[in-house]
Design a protein around this nucleic acid. Structure first.
Lengths: 306, 306
DNA sequence: GGTGCTCACAAGGTTACTTTGTGAGCATGC
DNA sequence: GCATGCTCACAAAGTAACCTTGTGAGCACC
């Protein structure tokens, strides 16, 4: 839960722009608000922090050291907010974009927003008009259908098998990783390594039956004697929280717990004798290359680091 | 710049809590607002997205598939916001915390907020009262002075040499990495690898003289013939932006460009024959272990993954 | 049928923000 | 030396958003 001292997103954005432009007024103009409003917002923020963030002079404003610090932190928030923005923009159905795509859940959740932001800034930098994208998020099978039926130009799917009749290109991989809370015995072992048999015999925190990650896990462990799940939850966020609280190990998509691993909320444990990698592909109908235009650009961008 | 469809931070938080509790009213109570306010906020958000996010029934509310998607994206934003919150809380001087620390800029910017969040949730999970921390961010030399003078109990410093008379423990490393924009020739090479000589002879985007990263870079390249900088900027954010726009290569702290590398805004290039690693240490005065209590806990947490 | 939960609608008040107008300090140029 | 243009701050008034309070309706359980 967020404390009472967190500034607004637009306030954070304002601070970042002030840092770049070196002027409250210029920043205000850039954001389309009045200079007075900008001044007042910054003052509110300073009240929240309890220290001056901006050193005002009669010919511009610079950030104080504290301000620089806050901007660094704000940058991280705004990066994530920009991906959220790109995602929401792609969901909006009222103003249909020029590019209609469909994506599996994992990709829509963790990768597509980043691609959209990246592609957009890339295009803007080259002076191009940024592509407007409309996205449908659904399961892999349905994505393939939509592409095949021509309802969307481009799809993103997971799994090993190529949908019949569609061309594809590798755009990434998603690995299921086994994670535990930092206080779990497995996290305290020197090697942080367990065997596939041990994993199968341990009660795990799992997603509900039918979910993508659950299916992959079941298949990978199919031949081994299984323990019954410790807990069955309906969202990845709930699984992460439960594991962090010590409910037991879980296998989740690597992208979903990237931040948790970096911050130490969760700890990764290697599993010997198990391959839990899924390949993520862009798929389309027709020629050997994606359809000319924005679709091709998006695929090229996504495939940049597969 | 952020689009007009980005919900407020508190609205995002509300959505996440609704997802967890399964009820608008319960979420409202948890956040200390009225049920009607929560209902209205969610409706506002749905208007922004253009699609229902919450499936309301007469006995609770669930998220729609779209809602789940937005929550995933919101989670990333809130994670970053939580670090910002922890950072701001540590800056506030009015209500002095129980633990007074000092940290070098790199650590304060990129690592400390994560440690504070991690430690806090760890303590809350074990039913402890979370430690209140007050932080001073300054350069390494000054941090050492503060610890030595007893003004702060604990410090975090960078650099190879141990401050005289202080005990220390390794809490992480910060590597300078060389990055270029995705369209830069070095990024297009198969191996993405250059020699130290090539790097030294190339006009780089650098921080202003006297900054920590600049100093490390200068020292590492001291013996080699140097090109004059392509651009000299006063903040890491400006350097990142310039490099992404194609102004030239730069060497920056790995933590600072973590997200840029993941999203492909920047591309990392390996440099042969150069070690640009800085060690980050916790330092304190007195015994071989950090002072009993919150200071020791924080060090233990920070050193968890050095 | 009562009780307790869910959420939605409506009215009123308060807060916060924004706009408009104004003033003062500093640098530049004539 | 003075005008011009930039910077930011202060003050007043209007507006818009939000939150709270009060109320009602549907569903489930006892």
């Amino acid at each position: 839960m967020l404390g009472p001292h967190v500034p607004d997103l637009r306030a954070l954005e304002l601070l970042v722009v002030v840092a770049r432009t070196g002027s409250l007024g210029a920043a205000a103009t850039e954001l389309g608000i009045s200079q007075q409003a900008a001044s007042s917002r910054v003052r509110t923020m300073e009240a929240l922090v309890g220290e001056p963030l901006v050193a005002r002079s009669k010919r511009g404003s610079e950030l104080t050291p504290t301000g620089e610090l806050v901007v660094q932190w704000a940058d991280r928030v705004l990066d994530a907010a920009q991906e959220l923005d790109a995602g929401i923009a792609a969901l909006r159905v009222d103003r249909r974009g020029h590019l209609d795509i469909a994506a599996s859940l994992t990709i829509a959740e963790h990768l597509l927003p980043g691609w959209l932001v990246g592609l957009r800034t890339h295009q803007v930098q080259r002076g191009q008009q940024p592509t407007e994208v409309t996205m449908t998020a659904t399961n892999t099978a349905r994505v393939a259908e939509l592409v095949e039926a021509g309802d969307v130009v481009l799809g993103f799917v997971e799994g090993p098998e190529a949908p019949r009749g569609l061309r594809r290109r590798l755009v990434g991989t998603d690995e299921l990783v086994v994670v535990v809370g930092p206080q779990h015995p497995w996290a305290l072992r020197a090697r942080r390594r367990v065997s596939a048999e041990t994993l199968a015999a341990t009660p795990l925190v799992v997603r509900e039956a039918g979910s993508g990650t659950r299916t992959v896990l079941e298949r990978a462990l199919a031949d081994r004697p299984r323990a019954t799940p410790a807990l069955e939850l309906s969202s990845t966020a709930a699984v992460r929280a439960a594991v962090a609280a010590g409910a037991g190990p879980a296998a989740v998509g690597a992208h979903a717990v990237r931040d948790d691993l970096l911050t130490g909320r969760l700890v990764r444990v290697a599993v010997t004798g198990l391959d839990l990698t899924r390949r993520l592909h862009a798929v389309w109908k027709g020629g050997p290359h994606p359809p000319e235009g924005p679709a091709r650009e998006l695929v090229a961008w996504a495939a940049r680091r597969p």
